[in-house]
């Protein structure tokens, strides 16, 4: 089926099978391998992307459903070589260990801060319920989210 959508600001028309998941479309068809497929059971959140501004699990959506939508992946958050404030904060606060969950974490925190620019620690932890870090590196992920909020407020 033919779909037209916007990915990371670029208009795009593509042919997809009805059964193609958004995550597979992004990774295999579009080469956007920053979005990770972690669990296969809609639980881990490594595959999160923004669809029309909301964080969603790209393994739980069909690509055909995205006709007319605007998708932002981890690749779309930085401006060329310039990292987004959330990405910078994850680097500075060491908000990652193996890094596999990081794309989903960064997308999720980006969405949180767009909706709630100054979240409490408890709000950050609740928001990240859908993002699993199997290294259990949550302390620094939460610190990174707090640092990102400060950076965005200062900017």
């Amino acid at each position: 089926m033919k779909i037209s959508l916007k990915i990371n600001g670029q208009d795009l028309t593509a042919e997809v099978a009805p059964t193609t998941l958004l995550v597979d479309f992004l990774r295999s068809d579009q080469g956007l391998t920053g979005t990770h497929l972690g669990c296969d059971t809609s639980q881990c959140g490594a595959c999160m992307v923004l669809v029309n501004g909301d964080a969603v699990k790209s393994c739980t959506l069909l690509a055909v459903q995205l006709d007319g939508a605007e998708v932002t992946t981890i690749e779309g958050l930085s401006d060329g070589e310039t990292l987004s404030p959330v990405q910078e904060a994850f680097r500075e606060a060491h908000g990652l260990q193996c890094g596999f969950c990081t794309p989903g974490m960064v997308v999720s925190v980006t969405d949180l801060l767009a909706k709630n620019p100054n979240p409490s620690e408890s709000e950050i932890r609740h928001w990240l319920e859908g993002n699993i870090c199997r290294c259990t590196g949550y302390q620094n992920i939460v610190k990174a989210a707090q640092m990102a909020a400060e950076k965005q407020q200062a900017a």
């Binding site: 669809v51 964080a55 969603v56 999720s108 969405d111 928001w127 859908g130």
Partner: peptide, 9 residues
């Protein structure tokens, strides 16, 4: 319900 990504869909 669920988590933010679930609540968005």
């Amino acid at each position: 319900i669920g988590d933010p990504a679930v609540r968005h869909r």
